[in-house]
Computed example of a mutant assay.
Amino acid sequence: MSHTLRDRAHADLGGLQARHPWVFHPPLKRRFVTVTVVVALTGLMLVGFWRLGFSFERMIKGIGELGTLVMLMLPPNPGSWSKAVLIFHALAETLAIAFLGTLLAAIIAFPIGFVAARNTTVNRLVQFASRRVLDGIRGVDALIWALLWINVVGLGPFAGVLAIMMSDIGSFGKLFSEAIEAADKRPVEGVTSTGGSRLHQIRYGIIPQILPVIGSQVLYYFESNTRSSTIIGIVGAGGIGLHLSEQIRTLEWQSVSFIILLILVMVAVIDLISSRLRQTLIGRSAQGKG
């Protein structure tokens, strides 16, 4: 039996080689291009390491310093009860920044997604302009938006919310428009056959299809923004990042490890909850299609 299977495998392999010879025996030109690309990328990587001062000696020495730093961080300790209360308050502020920034971005990007989608836009010129605007917004990192908004509205969590919001509007606009374009045309055609207007097509033919997808995307970005809001807090946009930066500056390493531990726990809990909610939304979407 095993010999029969082996003979069939060899026969299939021979047939595949006969039908697709360029896969098993690529031409010399293709091999030359592949080798050239690999060599060029390897050379570029080595030049980059050289220009950036990469050194194995410095890396090994840095690992030793990292071990010393980890020992200084143990055990995690906020220092005092009053300090712990401030840290937990800042952690809640970070969570609020991520939630409000993500929610506002989703609300603003939802109508923009319809303008940027090919099948629901006003005309091609409007679609092109809206896509380019979304590309421009998305091209600026949340940290840069935080620095800009701090100079506009001042230090604090309000600047953090605006930074998360602006960063996500570009991403949500693109994702929402792609979900709209990928929507099944049959429900839209059904609404049209009953005399429905363009707004009816969107309301009853497209929105019910894309809501689970959009909900899943918003939950994922909320999880991601929880980490981002920690980073932007370091530059003065409120939240736990500001306390983390202060503890590092004053070399309070046990407090630093306590804050990092709280951030890890918060992100893990949010990841668990959002993953289950996303699975629920995806499951409902699959049932609806079925």
Rank of each mutant, 00 (worst) to 15 (best):
residue 3 H to L: 14
residue 5 L to Y: 04
residue 8 R to Y: 04
residue 9 A to Q: 11
residue 10 H to K: 14
residue 14 G to P: 05
residue 14 G to E: 10
residue 14 G to V: 03
residue 23 V to S: 04
residue 26 P to Q: 12
residue 36 T to H: 08
residue 38 V to Q: 06
residue 40 A to C: 12
residue 47 V to R: 11
residue 54 F to A: 15
residue 54 F to Q: 02
residue 58 R to S: 11
residue 62 G to W: 06
residue 68 T to Q: 12
residue 71 M to E: 07
residue 71 M to Q: 12
residue 73 M to V: 04
residue 74 L to E: 07
residue 74 L to V: 12
residue 90 A to F: 07
residue 95 L to I: 15
residue 96 A to G: 06
residue 102 T to V: 09
residue 109 A to V: 10
residue 110 F to V: 00
residue 112 I to S: 00
residue 115 V to H: 00
residue 124 R to G: 15
residue 126 V to N: 10
residue 133 V to T: 07
residue 134 L to M: 15
residue 135 D to E: 12
residue 137 I to S: 04
residue 143 L to A: 04
residue 149 W to S: 09
residue 151 N to S: 15
residue 153 V to P: 00
residue 155 L to P: 10
residue 156 G to I: 05
residue 159 A to N: 03
residue 162 L to S: 06
residue 167 S to G: 09
residue 170 G to C: 10
residue 176 F to D: 01
residue 176 F to E: 01
residue 177 S to N: 06
residue 178 E to V: 01
residue 187 P to C: 08
residue 188 V to D: 01
residue 191 V to L: 03
residue 199 L to S: 13
residue 206 I to E: 03
residue 206 I to Q: 01
residue 212 P to N: 03
residue 216 S to Y: 00
residue 217 Q to P: 00
residue 218 V to K: 06
residue 222 F to C: 01
residue 224 S to H: 05
residue 226 T to F: 08
residue 230 T to A: 14
residue 232 I to M: 07
residue 238 G to V: 12
residue 243 H to S: 13
residue 243 H to T: 09
residue 245 S to G: 15
residue 253 W to N: 01
residue 258 F to H: 02
residue 264 L to M: 15
residue 265 V to L: 15
residue 269 V to W: 05
residue 275 S to P: 04
residue 279 Q to D: 09
residue 280 T to N: 09
residue 280 T to P: 00
residue 283 G to C: 08
residue 286 A to H: 10
residue 286 A to S: 10
